[in-house]
Design a protein around this nucleic acid. Structure first.
Lengths: 238, 238
DNA sequence: CGCCGTGTTGACCAGTTTCAAGATTGGTGG
DNA sequence: CCACCAATCTTGAAACTGGTCAACACGGCG
């Protein structure tokens, strides 16, 4: 099971080795987990660009993306912005926060979320070993991903950053989904994710297009022509 | 309780709100938690520069820093390096990893660690609600810190980066510890933490010294002369 | 049809890196 | 205790990447 799958589906087996089997007080199993979560969740919609919550707001809900794309970001006082994560359908966020949100969540596109009141969510997770493992593993994976993001921001140049970003998009779509990548996010979003300016993002994408690495049929669509070379660039090999 | 304290001491009360009280199968309470951990831990020493484990190695132990400083880093194939975290005495690391380490851990100075076999560590944490909460909160805090690190790497200039780094050092030492900051890490370590070159780190520190923001009595010691201005620079206000 | 938001491209500039030359520090052995 | 060596740190000058500013293109929509 890939990390990407792990992040978005119930875990049928323990994520990391555990010596003993702990007890549950509720019917066990992933299906029951899904059911338990479903019962405390409610759907909620946000329009493109709307703020879901702000950094510093009291954390009242955990969320799962049902549809659309969400960005988690930090804003500096002078308007600079850093996007920490894009969340795609199936992704959870804000699910094990301290009492205040540590980032702002905004709708990249129109989105539908499932929201879980934090207290109930904590209770359900507290009761179920399998859910506990799943969300603990999800936290670990988030740290893992964020640390890779650190490398991208701290030690890669513009071309490598874009290559890493595109490779990430491909991996998260699942290898099956065909060559066409739908990018809901704007050039500004990409720039703020990669620590670049919008102009540099444009220039590098154009350059990749000229060198036949990618095609850009449409501003929000993209296809990879040579994923081997793209991977090499992302890994700093070329 | 500050986040910094939270990271390094047992949690006397629940970190985030929980609806119901879950049961434990073992004597409860923070003191008992410490005792339970102590019983499965063993001391282990590493010399300055030694590798504790490599990225990709099977994760067999969780660690607590007893003495010295540890760096967690990622290495690129061409020698570039990004440091994700410095760990100071009292800090835990690698405590809720997937089956393989997602980063390399190296000794910045001579260090003493307490190592906990992962299976036993998981068992103890699984058994104790208070420990579960404590380490879940620690994971959350790590994500929080890493996201702030993203902002530093992605959206701050060299001067702001150094200011943020120094402010972090001060905050982690505890406000009480006097004005002298002992920096165990080398200039190269600082550069690799901030996504800069060693030369830029030197130049910015010299500039800060010239403008009477800091003093550098010794390569590995530093005092803050004007912490208000330093904070403003770190926050991008000035 | 024209306007507005977004994206693209170019010219120039600034901040950071690179390369290179010393200075300082710490450790080792005479 | 001091001399020497290696490693680390500091500083300067030149080169380069990415940023800034500005003009223009594109596309959706009233």
């Amino acid at each position: 099971m890939s990390l990407a799958e792990l992040a978005r589906s119930p875990s049928p087996s323990p994520i990391w080795p555990v010596a003993g089997q702990a007890m549950t007080r509720s019917p066990a199993g992933p299906d029951m987990d899904e059911e338990a979560l479903r019962r405390i969740g409610s759907k909620i919609r946000y329009g493109r660009g709307e703020t879901i919550f702000n950094e510093g707001d009291p954390a009242e809900f955990a969320y799962k993306v049902a549809n659309g794309v969400v960005r988690l970001c930090k804003h500096l006082s002078d308007g600079r912005r850093q996007i920490a994560q894009f969340l795609l359908p199936g992704d959870f966020f804000s699910f094990m926060e301290l009492s205040e949100h540590s980032f702002t969540a905004e709708a990249v596109s129109d989105v539908t979320l499932v929201s879980f009141p934090h207290r109930q969510f904590e209770r359900v997770v507290e009761e179920r070993v399998s859910l506990r493992r799943r969300f603990a593993a999800l936290l670990s994976k988030t740290i893992h991903d964020t640390q890779n993001h650190l490398v991208i921001l701290g030690r890669q140049n513009a071309k490598e950053k874009l290559a890493s970003f595109l490779v990430m998009l491909v991996q998260r779509r699942g290898e099956d989904a065909g060559p066409l990548i739908e990018m809901q996010m704007s050039r500004q979003d990409i720039a703020d994710y990669l620590g670049l300016t919008i102009e540099t993002v444009c220039r590098v994408l154009s350059e990749m297009k000229r060198s036949r690495l990618i095609d850009i049929p449409n501003v929000h669509q993209l296809t990879i022509r040579n994923s081997d070379v793209l991977n090499d660039i992302a890994d700093g090999i070329e």
